[in-house]
Design a protein around this nucleic acid. Sequence first.
DNA 1: TGGTGCCCTGAAACCGGTTTCTGTCACGCA
DNA 2: TGCGTGACAGAAACCGGTTTCAGGGCACCA
Lengths: 343, 343
Amino acid sequence: MGNSRVTVRQIARLAGVSVATVSRVSNGTGQVSEEMRRRVLEAIEEHGYRPDHLGRALAARRHGALGLVFPGLSGPYFTELIQGFESEAVPARASVHILCTHLREDSDDQVLEMARRVDGIAVIGGTISEPALLRLATMVPVVVLAGRGPDTVTSVSVDNAPAMTRLTRHLLVDHDLRHLAFVGNPDGSPDVSERWAGFRQAYRELDLTPPTEPVRVAMQQPDGVLAAERLLVGGTAPQAVVCANDEIALGVLVGALGRGLRVPEDLVITGFDDAPMAALVSPSLTTVRQPIRDLAAEAARRILSAADDPHAAAPESIVLPTEFVVRRSCGCPAESPTGGTGK
Amino acid sequence: MGNSRVTVRQIARLAGVSVATVSRVSNGTGQVSEEMRRRVLEAIEEHGYRPDHLGRALAARRHGALGLVFPGLSGPYFTELIQGFESEAVPARASVHILCTHLREDSDDQVLEMARRVDGIAVIGGTISEPALLRLATMVPVVVLAGRGPDTVTSVSVDNAPAMTRLTRHLLVDHDLRHLAFVGNPDGSPDVSERWAGFRQAYRELDLTPPTEPVRVAMQQPDGVLAAERLLVGGTAPQAVVCANDEIALGVLVGALGRGLRVPEDLVITGFDDAPMAALVSPSLTTVRQPIRDLAAEAARRILSAADDPHAAAPESIVLPTEFVVRRSCGCPAESPTGGTGK
DNA sequence: TGGTGCCCTGAAACCGGTTTCTGTCACGCA
DNA sequence: TGCGTGACAGAAACCGGTTTCAGGGCACCA
């Protein structure tokens, strides 16, 4: 029976061979005669021997594990991210460790501790301090996911700023709107920071004066509801609300509809991510599609190859393209043509 | 200078002591003279020595890691679950491995493989086959989370059925509704299965005939939208839609509002979980609050203590209480009294 | 002065694998 | 017959820690 207490040495004794031979058979390495192989396989089979992961990892000086560090899990974005990451890790026989630093004081230490248990780490941008990031990079291969780190650290992100400029220009020019509000906290993540920058850039390109302050809220649906409460009181409501992601946008939409506003007639709302719900709400959400799974998968691939050979590839900043998705919440009619990438 | 290549033996040589002494100092075990301790600490400090996790784990025959197995991550429920789990794991210096079996054929093997890398595993109910679960339990401490396993396996869940009966009775009796539809796939998870059973139970207790079939969809918001499409066509729309969780309910709500229906006047909708959005949508969602974080934290605690001493505690089925939360989507007026637990 | 017991220390064994290195044996060839 | 060669097997070293165990030194006591 498959008792996991069985060791190489026991199998070796039972099969009447040396441990080296057992190891060779169980790994398929080196030359082993047919007779020996048969005897060993028999013993392995009979006693349900499976090599111990720790022993093997110690000898190989390799954990067979990858780390993924979040500020805090929430929403479809992180769901996709994890699945993309796993889609590469699992075939490579690497397990996935996760760490939510959310609200914790000692997150830098936590991450450094994780570094001693994995072969490489993907850190979501803005999650830990830059010194910690640099220190981390001296210990294991590191990739910054959705953000940019120091030049010495590989990063994978999307073209946030141009995409948001494109979307904003659509509102300013095609829909001739002027009074736009941006919802999201630029200090919270590099993604939002870049989107906020792209938002303002659109104004400048048209020689208009951009808003000076965003509505600073977190990234979940309830935060969007909160933002709607703040924005839609009094007579100062904007013509359009440009949200840092779809979840916020959905929250704003719920808040607006709940106040009896019509979207997009009374209020235009846009998102970012193209979450599954974006196409399903009414009105459907104009947004920017980003390849979240690919993003995470690319990060995992980079980490894995860097773990195989630390000196193989130079640090690199990879930027994946996005796609502007025009739907109804911006005021476009139903079957509107879809825009291209975010340039 | 924290080079992680430093080993006990190097430190021992540098400090002019034995490896045993270094180990004793770095772990604070045994008796070490002040002089020795000082020398060792100096060397440790100077060379940035941190004991290797693998070496330590191998010697201790303990991974310092816990596993968490999902069918697939999605939504606020799993967010809470992970955070609750982590809240116990982190203080115990255990890292968290996750595994999404979602749609994979070989999930049983994946989980069994994980078992060789962690000290214990929490499996979300309905994720893997019962034989695999039993096999798993022979390898490491296992807890079934949100569901029930064989009697030999500890489980942690909530009182789904009574809670759902309570909610359904509220609709049938207090609001005098008869034509209710249940949305959710009972075959998808034990939680849903129990809620479906509780739903039908309410009918029987009133000598009414319950619906024979639920609307089978998955557990996310888009699935709720889908369900709304199916339910609200033609003249056969129900008076109320009882959803397996809040996410579905939110989806149904969006779908219903998008079709111009008034909630709760034209259609009553209820959820389950009391997700953050439930209180924020308009109308606010009548639902059942369950202690998700506590659920996961309890699971983690059980696993940790079982890992410390495998023979300490007998398998147990822990059932945590829920709370019926009456809001507006069921037709109750704004400031309605809140019900108690789900009995 | 000799015995007893405690405090400290380090050599060595151990955890469970992989890998190197040495050596044996059979075979082919001159 | 003698020698080089290649296939194969096993002893031992190694990965990096922890823990056992034996013994040295010293204080205390008779």
